[in-house]
């Protein structure tokens, strides 16, 4: 297989857009505009990032890497905080969580010579780590909020028996972490069996020896596994306390119960 895809070949990708477009038309899904817009937007975004990456890869590593990683961290922070913006201190908690994850993963990669300190290696791999951590933090925040809502009665029962907030919310922290980690455990379990992971596929298509591609994939998969676990744990443990006030009371619990009675 040629590692090069010509522009003419790319043009034929339009067929892949026409299929959902036709479906939308025949079944009157009203999604034609969305399909066209998202395909166009995705294409432009990818080419734009391609040019930006080409520029960044040419910069000296000590400048290009912090610059791009910093931008990724900021964007990821603002995105993840959306899921819990009503909670206090969510912005700094998410930012420091992502920063800790990225710095520790980078430290491991560089110390044990898994990745070279080159923009072409560190930036895409950091992107995957930060992106997955961002999703894990967002999901944890969302899950935690819904668990607190669903378990309001149990929390009141625990507090009324004399539990401190940490003890009362133990079950919720456990459930939130469980929910955040299960998809990762499943992904690692079936890796290579159900689907060939994206990075490995890309390297093989790019002409890299499959065993070498697998080594890279292992580095990134296990790095993501670990970062997702740390992110979920960090954000959950840092944020559960804000569902209580300093008097070990659930915030707004009484009003909610009153309105239900």
């Amino acid at each position: 297989m040629s590692p090069e895809i010509s522009n003419q070949s790319l043009l034929f990708l339009i067929v892949f857009v026409v299929v959902p477009l036709t479906l939308s038309y025949f079944y009157q899904l009203g999604m034609s505009r969305d399909i066209l817009w998202s395909s166009l937007r995705g294409t432009v975004q990818l080419f734009a990032i391609g040019y930006i990456l080409t520029y960044l890869f040419d910069l000296p590593a000590s400048f290009g890497i912090p610059l791009m990683v910093g931008i990724m961290l900021i964007i990821a922070t603002f995105h993840a905080r959306q899921k819990g913006k009503e909670l206090p201190y969510v912005l700094p908690v998410v930012f420091f969580g992502l920063l800790i994850v990225e710095v520790s993963v980078l430290f491991m990669w560089l110390t044990f010579d898994m990745v070279q300190f080159r923009p072409s290696e560190v930036i895409p791999m950091s992107g995957m780590v930060i992106g997955n951590s961002m999703v894990a933090m967002g999901l944890s925040l969302e899950r935690m909020k819904s668990e607190f809502k669903q378990n309001n009665g149990r929390l009141l029962a625990a507090l009324s028996l004399g539990a401190k907030p940490k003890q009362a919310s133990h079950l919720i922290v456990q459930k939130t972490l469980h929910a955040a980690l299960i998809p990762n455990v499943d992904r690692i379990k079936t890796i290579g069996l159900v689907q060939l992971p994206g990075m490995m596929t890309g390297l093989i298509l790019g002409g890299v020896d499959p065993v070498m591609a697998i080594k890279y994939q292992l580095v990134i998969s296990l790095s993501i596994f670990s970062s997702v676990s740390i992110s979920a744990m960090f954000v959950t443990i840092a944020m559960y306390r804000y569902f209580f006030n300093q008097n070990k009371q659930l915030v707004e619990s009484a009003e909610e119960i009153e309105s239900q009675s």
Binding site: L156, S160, N247, K248, S253, A254, I257, E258, S261
Partner: peptide
């Protein structure tokens, strides 16, 4: 009523 009840054990 529930509001009053919760004041006794400082749930609020």
């Amino acid at each position: 009523k529930s509001t009053l009840l919760f004041l006794f054990n400082r749930l609020s």
